[in-house]
Simulated scan of single mutants.
Amino acid sequence: MLSLPSQLLIRNLDLFAEGQWAIVNPSDVHIFSEIESDKVVGLHQMFDMYQGASNISKHKQYYAADFTAIPALKENKLDGAVIYLPKAKQHLDLLIHQLNDLLKIGGQLLVVGENKAGIKSVGKLLEKLGSTVNKIDGAKHCGLICVTKENEASKAFNLESNGVIRTYSVNDLPVKVFSLPGVFGHKQFDPGTQLLLSELAPKSDRLLALRGNILDFACGTGIIGTYLLKANAHVKLVMSDVSALATYCAKKTLELNEVEAQVIDSDGLNEVSGTFDAVVSNPPFHTGIKTNYDITQQFIVDAHKQTRPRGKLMIVANRFLPYADTLSKQYFKSQTVLQTNKFSIYEAAK
């Protein structure tokens, strides 16, 4: 099903009639079925969208945290690109700087998105590329904004230089964290994650019980898994996330703390093989700006399948989220370890 931004975009398919174009981080994969030109490529930072588009589309698809590192795009610059408006404005700014490096002088950069997501305010960010910013179309409670690139950037885009490094005290243990816009936990120590890790203090029974293969699902910046590696020498860690930006950050965080783990790009647990003695997570409950319980509900089911006998699952979630029943149905036993007015920490054993 076409998202509302895609429905607006197909009213303007003549944009893609000439030249090399890119569709950047689309909110659905079906937009590629509507575009006839074979000179349109997909650029994705979300692994599920990349896989879905690759499966249904004739168009070339790329998956990367940094699109400027894709050789084919560096050699043949784009005549135009359409960015689907992300949740975080800082993430949009990051994408604009990437696409600026990939566009020809005179090329068009467009942003499409819903009014409630903030499409009306993106013009100032686009003014970095050119002096004239226009609204091309508006319908379906969405807008399509365009700017023409007038000058080359003063310096080449560098993804790492856009990151922020901060050191957080996690149960009195210093953990350096690398983060980028668009990644959960950017420039903050999320309070839900803090609460979860407070139950895994050094030398605590719960932490000492974590041994063997451990999975940090939806790892984000990598703070959970990195802390576990620093606090417990008896774990072998795997991190996974659906976001290329997140796995990029997680790798940087591991390097900063001089610990090692396998980091996997995966839609849910689809790309994660093997079984685990424990799974620890602060799982997502949003798809873009929309609340989506299905991601974590499916994760709980899949985690049970990949947890070894007597293995455990430990997650933190907003208190209002309905995960207790799913846990009790899937696992031999489950309990609410801790509950505040905002969060619940659940532990389940197979």
Rank of each mutant, 00 (worst) to 15 (best):
L144W: 03
H286K: 01
A244C: 07
I223P: 00
A156R: 14
D277M: 02
L78P: 04
I165F: 05
R308K: 14
R211S: 12
L245I: 09
S121Q: 15
S204T: 12
L92W: 11
K74Y: 13
N282G: 02
L125C: 08
N12K: 09
R11K: 14
A246M: 05
Q51W: 13
Y50A: 10
K124F: 04
M239K: 03
K120M: 11
V147N: 06
C142L: 03
T167A: 03
Q45Y: 04
I264Y: 03
A218H: 07
A246Q: 01
L73V: 10
F32T: 14
Q306N: 05
D190F: 11
A201G: 03
T193Y: 00
D216R: 02
A278N: 01
A139D: 13
Q297I: 15
A69G: 15
G182A: 05
A69Y: 08
K203N: 13
Q297A: 14
I70L: 10
H59V: 11
D216A: 00
G185F: 01
A278F: 05
K140Q: 09
P191M: 12
K149W: 07
Y248Q: 13
L207I: 11
V263H: 08
S6A: 12
G118Q: 10
V164M: 09
N12I: 08
K77Q: 15
K290V: 14
A317V: 12
A153M: 03
I10T: 12
N55F: 13
T287H: 06
L197R: 07
E34S: 11
H59D: 09
R11D: 14
L195F: 11
V147F: 02
K251A: 09
L43Q: 09
L228A: 02
L254C: 11
R206S: 15
N341Y: 07
N257S: 08
K116T: 14
G220P: 01
L92E: 08
A64N: 09
G113Y: 07
H141P: 00
I224Y: 01
V82G: 00
L126I: 07
T296H: 04
L99W: 04
E34R: 12
E347V: 08
S243N: 12
F32K: 06
S37D: 08
G52H: 05
N171D: 01
H141I: 00
K342W: 05
S161W: 05
Q339W: 08
N25R: 03
F16T: 08
A53E: 14
P5M: 01
S281N: 08
G138C: 00
V183G: 07
F343D: 06
M49L: 15
S154P: 01
H44V: 12
F343T: 11
K87H: 07
Y331E: 00
V164C: 11
